[in-house]
Simulated assay, not measured.
Amino acid sequence: MIAIRFDRFGGPEVLTPVELPTPTPGEGEVLITVEAAGVNFADTHRTDGSYLDADQLPHIPGSEVVGRTADGRRVLAWVSNGYAEQVVAAGSRLVEIPDDLDAAQALALNMQGLTAWHLLRSAARMSAGETVVVHSAAGGVGSLAVQLAKEFGAGRVLAQVSTPAKERLVLDLGADEIAGYPLREPADVVLDAVGGQLFDQALDSLASFGRLVTYGNASRGGFTPVDPARLGRLNASVVGFWLRPTLAAPGAIEGPLKELFRLTATGRLRPVVGGDYPLTEARRAHEDLLARRTVGKVVLRP
């Protein structure tokens, strides 16, 4: 089978197609023939060494796939080596999905959808009527967060994006307006995956008792130290968020994922699929993701 592997840390250029034996399932595991593998920003950190140690090389990235088991079930699965034609997954890490649900949409609802849901519900604890600002609003998480904020009753949703084409997309998804700093009115909630200067601008734009939820550093500009005295003067808070420990809590996956599937099936939520690449072009997918040329969910297809 073909898989995408890197033997040293670096940029997208280290991602290389290789021929490997089909993996053998262990006890409690199943073999999945991959229909599509999700590409996430975290994969770029694994590739450059931010998430891995040198003793874990060589490594096949990818944490989620849609595919079929040997007995014919179509499943969404959490895995550790997803950029491959076939993978193994723990039987407890599978969710059966309907045949009429597009694989890329299912993957969007998994990692990005659960992130957006928990950012608003668990981290920000958004209330109806509040003003929500979403950074990187055309991305996989952001495009769903814009829609979910409206679905959860936000009074106004402002979207921060980087190009006119992305402005048109997020307005079509339901954003009330494009966010530009300084904001005309303070925000109750800001979802930030960018960091750097944008984080500082957002923090100063919070309303009293506002919450800035930080869940990434796409700018690669480093994290801004936060002075507790500054938070006191602003009467605001900064909330850190990481999906992995969040999903370890009881009920953190099944209930939210069921709601996301239902909203999609009824047309109230539209997962955006922005990049569909052949598996062997994983390098190009990472290049486009890092250059912010993509929108929505990016997937690789064997």
Rank of each mutant, 00 (worst) to 15 (best):
A175G: 11
F223Y: 12
I2V: 12
N40W: 02
Q197D: 09
H59N: 13
L107S: 06
V65N: 14
G251Q: 01
G195R: 06
P225V: 01
P228I: 11
R220M: 06
L247A: 13
L15G: 04
G180Q: 11
G26S: 07
G221K: 09
S205K: 04
L231F: 01
P17N: 14
V213G: 12
L257M: 09
E185L: 07
R168S: 10
R121M: 02
K150S: 00
N81D: 12
R293A: 11
E85Y: 08
A202S: 13
V30Y: 13
G180T: 12
P182T: 15
F261L: 15
D172N: 12
D102S: 14
E151Y: 04
V238G: 01
L109R: 14
G28C: 07
A104T: 12
A187G: 01
R262P: 03
E64G: 13
V146M: 04
A3W: 00
R168G: 04
T266Y: 05
G195K: 07
A123P: 08
P23A: 14
V75G: 07
A137R: 11
T266G: 05
N217M: 14
V87L: 07
R125P: 00
G274Y: 04
V30A: 15
A123M: 07
G142S: 04
D48Y: 01
R268K: 10
P302S: 12
L52S: 03
S136H: 08
L107H: 08
G232A: 14
V79D: 02
V272E: 07
F199S: 01
I60P: 01
V88Y: 06
R8I: 00
G180E: 06
R233T: 03
L158V: 10
V295N: 12
V88E: 09
P225H: 14
G11R: 13
S127K: 08
L243K: 09
R68D: 09
R292Q: 07
E185Y: 02
E19N: 10
G62T: 10
A54K: 15
R5G: 02
E27L: 11
L191W: 02
A103D: 08
Q105D: 15
Q112P: 02
T24P: 00
G67A: 11
K258F: 00
A106H: 10
A236D: 12
H135K: 10
F241S: 03
G26M: 05
L114P: 04
Y83N: 10
V157Y: 05
G91M: 03
R68W: 09
A252C: 05
L169K: 05
V14F: 01
L20I: 12
G139P: 04
A116D: 14
A218Y: 08
G142P: 03
P245Q: 09
I178A: 08
R283K: 15
D43C: 01
G67M: 11
E130N: 02
H45M: 14
D204R: 05
N40H: 07
F6L: 07
G38K: 08
A207M: 11
S92V: 09
G296F: 06
E27T: 13
L171W: 02
L198Y: 03
T115I: 06
V133F: 01
I97D: 09
M111T: 15
E64H: 10
L57T: 05
L257K: 04
V95Q: 13
